[in-house]
């Protein structure tokens, strides 16, 4: 028994070293800065001063939830449709989906700017059709659109992975027992793909809530999200510690929501592990 445990910990050693170096240390630094002032003395002021950022917190969470929800609405059916395609085609569809992810996020966001700008592609087309103009850049809708566009693959990928592993015979068994195609989806595919959905939601929500360039570029500087606020605090040495406090609180919020989500999907198999 002891021997086995020893062996197991030896096998896990690189993982532990890695975690300590790249996860635990940085976290400790963030916590250290969050609870100290510029001179390094302990203080709670950074945390208590966060009240003035309440609006940013609320807006960030709201937009991220909306973006995540839209990603789910698009991503789930998309993943399902891909799994129903012939196996040889599925890889190709997934490749198409992943392709944009190989382009730098910043470049993608810039090109979205070019498309949505007042003098951009969409408005040029509208003008050509003589349908008037719409102002997109600088709206919250544009930011949500950016989040959805950038992070949609993170929703589809884990759902597709879990769904494609569902034994096809289960679907036949369900049909055999009287399920219409819709009932097969609701009674078998949905419950068996929950772990993928939960991974997908996490993988979209976390980058959405901490993004700063999407809101900067597509939000046109008219409002600020958490990521922007944190970035601004860190650009100024005097507010370093406030930035750390915001980051810490955001992290705690994310961890809490992760814990809640994982309770829904404790029987997950093959979901993307975060």
């Amino acid at each position: 028994m002891i021997k086995k445990n020893l062996l197991r910990s030896a096998a896990a050693a690189p993982h532990i070293v890695w975690s300590v170096l790249f996860i635990v240390f940085p976290l400790l630094f963030v916590a250290y800065f969050a609870f100290t002032d510029g001179a390094g003395a302990f203080t709670l002021e950074n945390i208590t001063s966060l009240g003035e950022h309440t609006q940013t917190f609320v807006l960030s969470i709201a937009l991220s939830i909306i973006a995540t929800f839209i990603c789910f609405l698009i991503g789930y059916p998309l993943a399902y449709i891909i799994t129903t395609a012939p196996e040889s085609h599925q890889k190709f569809y997934m490749l198409l989906l992943m392709l944009p992810m190989w382009t730098n996020l910043l470049i993608r966001t810039y090109s979205m700017m070019a498309i949505m700008d007042d003098g951009g592609l969409i408005n040029n087309i509208l003008a050509a059709l003589d349908w008037g103009q719409i102002h997109l850049i600088g709206t919250k809708g544009a930011v949500v659109f950016g989040m959805v566009y950038d992070f949609l693959p993170y929703m589809v990928l884990p759902i597709y992975t879990v769904m494609s592993k569902i034994d096809r015979r289960l679907l036949e068994a369900a049909r055999d027992l009287g399920c219409s195609p819709v009932q097969v989806l609701l009674k078998v595919i949905v419950p068996l793909s929950m772990s993928g959905v939960i991974s997908g939601i996490t993988m979209v929500f976390v980058p959405s809530i901490s993004t700063f360039y999407i809101s900067q570029k597509l939000g046109g500087g008219t409002f600020e999200l958490l990521g922007d606020t944190i970035e601004r605090q860190f650009q100024n040495e005097a507010t370093y510690n406030v930035g750390a406090a915001i980051a810490l609180v955001m992290m705690v919020l994310i961890l809490i929501s992760l814990a809640v989500m994982n309770r829904f999907g404790d029987d997950d198999e093959g979901g993307v592990v975060l």
Partner: peptide, 14 residues
């Protein structure tokens, strides 16, 4: 009105 007992059972794991 035909039901099947599948080769590898195909029970619903959930």
């Amino acid at each position: 009105h035909v039901n099947t007992v599948f080769q590898k059972y195909a029970l619903f794991p959930h």
